[in-house]
Design a protein around this nucleic acid. Structure first.
Lengths: 154, 154
DNA sequence: CCAGATCACTTGTACCTACAAGTGAGGACT
DNA sequence: AGTCCTCACTTGTAGGTACAAGTGATCTGG
């Protein structure tokens, strides 16, 4: 079978595995977890909704709903941005920060089990290069990979 | 950044690209398309719901809803299985077969553009091996890759 | 300083998927 | 035959996402 059909199959299956583990172990969608994780790595654990949406590949309506639900669970807080009255800042609460810390190991272990351990060391290296090349097409601005921080013109 | 985080990013982005193209050009979910495509490759373009579910990584309720909607659009037909009164056979109609033929080229072109063309020939070869290794973990029975046909005990 | 355009969200509606419960056919055991 | 159990779906309900419309705040031109 062609390489791309196998890749499509992987892309079909892997999200279900990751999502399932997080739902079972942390009552969190994979996307919920991603939101919390990105916030946890931001300075002061605060980001504007627009920035958070860009870094998580979410539309603004989607992020708005998700953050509202996370806020109802006490994992995130929203506050109007002091410098721009239109903007909203999302901040990870202590409970949210604790949630990330207790959830991350299991998530990483799942990825390790289903991805890293399935490959040889050489394949992992190859995968890094392949995923890198794909991301240059799928995510030219590097929004998901943190390239935003060090992005410059040209 | 670690290889696995890039892979997760790819897995996050690629479905959206594939789904979007099919929704725009054919008013079809990527999963809808997958269902039609699998049916189109089956003998007589007929499969039992259970088999179809296994080959598309779907739960039976999900498939039931999807096939009902495809039937309402005239792309698929359902009929009770003659040999087993409990089972239902899903058959691709002429309209469904035409839909697959007119949709496939655009879909393949999208995959080519975003995946194959982004990689070197060597990377495509490497990808085949990597995806193969991952599928042995994610899909041990080879349900999605057609290994069912030639599967035997032990 | 005031009207219009733009921006940053939020809210509402429709669709899709997951989980749970229900229906009816087929097989096992007596 | 009759009962119990399992199988193969179908249906109903809840939750998440997409698209469209609405609400204020900010910028721009006069």
């Amino acid at each position: 079978m062609a390489a791309w059909r196998r890749l499509v199959a992987v892309v079909e299956l892997l999200p279900g595995v990751l999502d399932g583990q997080l739902r079972r172990d942390a009552q969190l969608t994979h996307f919920d977890y991603h939101v919390l994780a990105v916030l946890s790595e931001a300075p002061h654990r605060v980001l504007r909704m627009t920035d958070l949406a860009a870094r998580t590949n979410a539309t603004l309506p989607r992020l708005s709903h998700v953050v509202r639900r996370l806020e109802e669970r006490g994992l995130v807080e929203r506050a109007p941005c002091p410098s721009d009255g239109r903007a909203t800042n999302a901040r990870l609460t202590e409970a949210g920060w604790a949630k990330v810390r207790e959830t991350a190991p299991g998530h990483v272990a799942t990825v390790r089990e289903h991805v890293v351990d399935a490959l040889t060391q050489e394949q992992v290296t190859q995968l890094a290069g392949i995923a890198d090349a794909l991301l240059r097409r799928l995510d030219p601005d590097g929004r998901l990979t943190g390239a935003l921080d060090r992005a410059g013109p040209g």
